[in-house]
């Protein structure tokens, strides 16, 4: 049962037939692991905390830099130099003190990551490099945990979901098999803040939908967002039978 305070706070959710009190209780019991607290993780974590997701684990080993403030909107200028997870915890606790938030400030190896993923209901990949993206997908695949991947650069965004709890799910490696770090990131290519804001917000939307039991619009799909035209393209991702990652975890 929701308390009177919760009923007031989440009244706009309770009006939705596909959320309601049952959905709100599912959110309250849920645990989401957010990997990366930059331009994607900042809005995603704010929406999940605001929505009443009961347990958030924030992982990022970076300290807040003044150049982050252009897009990482949960932080303020007085927090420059702090660990992002500490700055984010303060912000999210101020937003919703009912949410339990744990921060991980050091870089995790595969074993640690596997432990964290095993304890989560859902993982958001909000990182900024290809090797982390590959590792997170591999670990989620192994643990059969759903993964929502966002990325943004310049005026382009990418969004995809792999629900590894379902059989025959494709993985990040099926789509982008290369692990070579020659890809585009925000520090070498630049990015407009609302690009990562859009993608991070949609990761939160898909997370909430998943947690309350609504079907995803992006499972085994890649959505490409063009910030110049505001056009979206959708592509079906099939499992690569030759994929060394997901075919090894059947």
């Amino acid at each position: 049962m929701l308390s009177d305070a919760e009923t007031l706070r989440y009244s706009r959710h309770l009006l939705l037939s596909n959320v309601g009190e049952a959905g709100q209780l599912k959110l309250k019991q849920a645990k989401v692991l957010i990997m990366g607290m930059g331009g994607l993780g900042a809005p995603a974590s704010m929406y999940l905390a605001a929505a009443g997701v009961g347990n958030l684990v924030l992982a990022d080993f970076d300290e807040l830099d003044v150049s982050n403030l252009q897009r990482q909107i949960s932080y303020d200028a007085s927090q420059v130099g702090l660990h992002k997870v500490d700055a984010a915890k303060a912000r999210l606790a101020g937003l919703n003190c009912e949410v339990r938030i744990r921060g991980i400030k050091k870089k995790m190896d595969a074993k640690q990551l596997a432990m964290e993923v095993a304890m989560a209901d859902l993982v958001l990949d909000c990182t900024d490099n290809l090797s982390s993206r590959h590792l997170i997908s591999q670990v989620c695949c192994q643990a059969k945990k759903p993964l929502i991947v966002g990325a943004g650069i310049r005026l382009e965004g990418q969004l995809m979901m792999f629900d590894f709890s379902q059989p025959d799910s494709a993985c990040y490696h099926c789509l982008f098999p290369s692990t070579q770090e020659q890809t585009l990131n925000c520090s070498n290519s630049g990015v407009l803040g609302p690009i990562v804001g859009t993608i991070g917000s949609l990761q939160a939307l898909e997370a909430i939908k998943y947690l309350v039991g609504l079907p995803s619009g992006i499972n085994n799909q890649l959505k490409l967002f063009d910030g110049l035209t505001l056009n979206w393209q959708s592509f079906a991702i099939s499992r690569d039978p030759a994929c060394p990652v997901c075919s090894a975890h059947e």
Binding site: C174, L175, F176, P177, S178, Q180, Q182, T183, L222, Q233, S234, F235, A236, I237, S238, D240, P241, A242, C243
Partner: peptide, 17 residues
């Protein structure tokens, strides 16, 4: 080169294919 993905008629074609 590495790092590219390709789709034909909105379906991704795996690199192995």
């Amino acid at each position: 080169e590495q790092g590219m993905a390709l789709a034909i008629n909105q379906a991704i074609i795996s690199r192995s294919e």
